[in-house]
């Protein structure tokens, strides 16, 4: 039993999500990601339960663990009550903790989700916030969203929201005291450490590539090498 496996076993999601897997492949059959990507959750769970640290390290450095959409459809179908989706979440956490996420194209994308989502949480108290959800980078949101963005205050007022307003209501301004509490939660539970670790790794890579932070962000936001898909 290796050190990586030992660390994985301490994760509550592995404790809950991994009993003895019988390798039936039901999870792969139901998995939306397995249809789209070169992805096989059966194989991932098998590698973890092999306890082979060298294989687990390869997995942690690969694109593979980042293909899952965490829909958890696998959980419903597993005849042994395993949760491959939870196993993947534990692998992703360890990959970030070890710095291995920087070894794969999909892993490096963590900087995008960390910056965007944690930025929204710490600044506004929400994972998604209308003023930072831009049509320019989300054109699939349609012409209707473009219109909403251009007339945001008027549209949200029409829809009985309370955009950036005091008191309760949709997309209200969350009081600073409450945002301070969320920040403190981040600080004492490892949230801030994770944000900082992902940011430091991204800045180091950007410097190595001779890119500004913005250029690096745009690169990992749009880059796709074409080898991921399950053609």
């Amino acid at each position: 039993m290796g050190k990586l496996y030992e660390r994985l076993m301490k994760d509550y999601r592995i404790k809950e999500g991994l009993n003895a897997c019988i390798n039936c492949g039901t999870c792969t059959a139901i998995c939306p990601a397995a249809e789209f990507y070169k992805y096989d959750p059966r194989q991932i769970v098998d590698t973890v339960q092999s306890q082979d640290d060298a294989e687990i390290e390869k997995l942690l450095k690969s694109d593979t663990i980042w293909y899952c959409g965490e829909c958890m459809s696998c959980v419903t179908r597993c005849p042994r009550k395993n949760a491959p989706g939870l196993v993947v979440m534990a692998l992703r956490s360890l990959s970030i903790d070890m710095g291995y996420f920087m070894e794969s194209e999909k892993g490096r994308q963590q900087y995008v989700v960390s910056k965007d989502l944690c930025g929204n949480i710490l600044n506004y108290g929400y994972c998604v916030y209308p003023r930072t959800f831009k049509y320019a980078t989300h054109q699939e949101a349609g012409k209707v969203w473009k219109w909403e963005e251009e007339h945001m205050d008027d549209v949200y007022e029409r829809l009985n929201a309370n955009l950036d307003g005091e008191g309760p209501g949709a997309v209200r301004k969350i009081p600073q005291k409450d945002l301070d509490e969320i920040k403190k939660i981040f600080d004492i539970t490892g949230g801030t450490d994770r944000v900082n670790a992902v940011k430091a790794a991204a800045e180091k890579r950007a410097k190595e590539l001779g890119l500004t932070e913005e250029e690096y962000f745009n690169k990992i936001y749009t880059e796709c090498n074409g080898a991921h898909l399950n053609h």
């Binding site: 509550y12 979440m89 989700v113 989502l117 949480i121 994972c127 509490e181 939660i185 490892g190 949230g191």
Partner: peptide, 29 residues
Amino acid sequence: ETEHHTTCGGIAYHSDAIPQETVMTIIAR
């Protein structure tokens, strides 16, 4: 409804941007 509640952090958690302990403490709040 109170204005003091926030996100549960679930989208960030399921994007693996925050650890389980962080999201659980936000939920506890």
